[in-house]
Amino acid sequence: MHVEMLVLQFPREVVDQPIIYRLVKDFALEFNLLRAAINPRQEGLMVMELRGHPKDFRRGLKYLRQTGVKVRQVAREVRRNEERCYQCGTCTAVCPTGALYIERPGMAVAFDASKCSACEHCCPACPAQAMEVRLNRAAV
């Protein structure tokens, strides 16, 4: 199984096509949608976790690119400012992937960046404003 967190950019011309359906049907890929902004006749954007056999995964990505969808891996964009974080745990209420979690019984709040989908829900929810978004230029 191969898993990647991806940002898909849909050009205007293809937003009316069932592209994700084809990914599932033709390439047996599993997806978990974390963010989607698709409007008729406008450029669309999706953030999703895509999972499948490595071979299917590669073919699926090739298909996406052929249809004109821009695919990029999510750069580790959200970081925690360790100075600011005071270890409360509020962020765990909104983190959809479990990247932010509480270590029990000590109750320290841990951040596993490898699980982060960069959905950014934690950024405004953090009372201490400790979650920062940074663009990883190398990955864009």
């Binding site: 005071y86 270890q87 409360c88 745990g89 209420a93 029990r104 109750m107």
Partner: peptide
């Protein structure tokens, strides 16, 4: 980390920092 509310398991979230 979770509690039972009328049969539904609900994740519990602290706002108070026990560490500090």
């Amino acid at each position: 980390g979770k509690m039972d509310l009328d049969g539904q398991m609900v994740p519990t979230v602290p706002l108070s920092s026990l560490v500090r």
